[in-house]
């Protein structure tokens, strides 16, 4: 049970983000929620690739007595998380710029108001 605490942290982040996405009406708050949801997913990917008492897979000045490859974390989840983080930044920038544009157009950031003015 105690071994699942990092998974619990990742899922708590994901649930907080999901709450913000589902229940908030401000577009900026929805963007923040999507960002938190994304960081929960990233944390989950990283925890899946961790080994007990392992160091980062970098050979420069490796600590003495590190067993290769059992003493190193898995590199592929880390690389894919890097990809995911950069894509998250790109999506966040697009969301915020569209929120700015919507505010200029409708004068509000409330998602219900925007739906009402659709015609």
């Amino acid at each position: 049970m105690i071994h699942n605490v990092p998974y619990l942290a990742a899922v708590a982040l994901a649930i907080i983000g999901l709450y913000a996405v589902l229940f908030k009406r401000n577009l900026i708050k929805i963007a923040i929620g999507i960002s938190i949801l994304e960081s929960g997913v990233n944390l989950f990917l990283i925890t899946l690739g961790y080994r007990e008492n392992a160091v980062a897979p970098i050979y420069t000045n490796l600590p003495e007595g590190t067993s290769i490859p059992e003493g190193m974390t898995l590199p592929v989840p880390q690389a894919l998380t890097l990809t995911s983080i950069v894509i998250g930044v790109a999506v966040l920038a697009l969301m915020l710029s569209f929120a700015v544009k919507i505010y200029q157009h409708y004068g509000t950031l409330d998602s219900r108001e925007i739906r009402r003015l659709r015609e």
């Binding site: 050979y59 420069t60 000045n61 490796l62 003495e64 590190t66 290769i68």
Partner: peptide
């Protein structure tokens, strides 16, 4: 190609 294992970089 660097030597295998720990090296100063």
């Amino acid at each position: 190609i660097p030597p295998f294992g720990s090296n100063p970089g």
